[in-house]
């Protein structure tokens, strides 16, 4: 469950993050404030608390969500807020004059964002986003707290049967380490492939 939980949540988080970052970058009134509020709340509260609110809290008002979708929901919303900040900073880092140049050749704002600014921003954001993905692989272990049988939860169950906590917890640690090492390697390859434009 660790891998699908991470992959699905991260993919949704990226969509949320790009939208949230763009709304702020473009300064769309109303939506911009909403985006800020979202980022503020999510970044200011612990992930574990968010998991508990959604899984154990929401049933109080009649909203019952199964463990796995609840975990996906919380991880995407959480990661979306952090990555939105990363992407927003990357958007700001793209030299602004290109937008005016785009206007002068007759492009619309959306065309400029989609074809010129966003591709450059995503390249700038690639390394920090990869780091977030790696952090997320490990954070998914928190989903055990809301009964999602991801890797950590599975380990706890085996420990309960076999009374071998040291060996088993070290083993699961090593598995996380392998996942993250593979991802780090992929990140290097990705960075090489993307490179900078020219040079």
């Amino acid at each position: 469950m660790t891998i699908p939980l991470t992959v699905i949540s991260f993919a949704i988080a990226m969509v949320i993050a790009v939208v949230t970052a763009l709304v702020q970058f473009a300064g769309i009134r109303g939506l911009k404030e909403l985006a800020r509020f979202y980022v503020w709340v999510v970044r200011g509260t612990p992930l574990l608390v968010q998991l508990f609110v959604v899984f154990y809290g929401l049933p109080n008002i009649g909203i019952l969500i199964d463990p796995f979708p609840a975990a996906v929901l919380v991880f995407s919303i959480n990661e979306g807020a952090y990555s939105a900040e990363t992407i927003r900073a990357a958007l700001e880092a793209v030299p602004r004059g290109q937008m005016e140049a785009g206007e002068c050749v007759g492009m619309t704002y959306l065309q400029i964002i989609r074809r010129i600014v966003l591709p450059q921003a995503l390249r700038i954001a690639f390394p920090p986003l990869s780091n977030s993905l790696i952090a997320m692989v490990k954070d998914t272990s928190l989903a055990a707290n809301i009964t999602v049988t991801e890797m950590f939860m599975a380990t706890q169950r085996i420990v309960a049967r076999t009374y071998e906590p040291l060996a088993l917890y070290i083993e699961v640690g090593i598995i996380y380490l392998i996942f993250c090492t593979v991802l780090t390697k992929l990140q290097r390859v990705g960075e090489k492939r993307l490179g900078t434009y020219g040079r």
Binding site: A101, I116, Q120
Partner: peptide, 22 residues
């Protein structure tokens, strides 16, 4: 400051407006 599109080649800079706006 030229303000060239940094993610486009020299040719891409010249053709961008033609393809997208025209």
């Amino acid at each position: 400051n030229y303000n060239l599109f940094l993610n486009r080649t020299a040719l891409g800079n010249v053709t961008e407006g033609l393809i997208v706006a025209r």
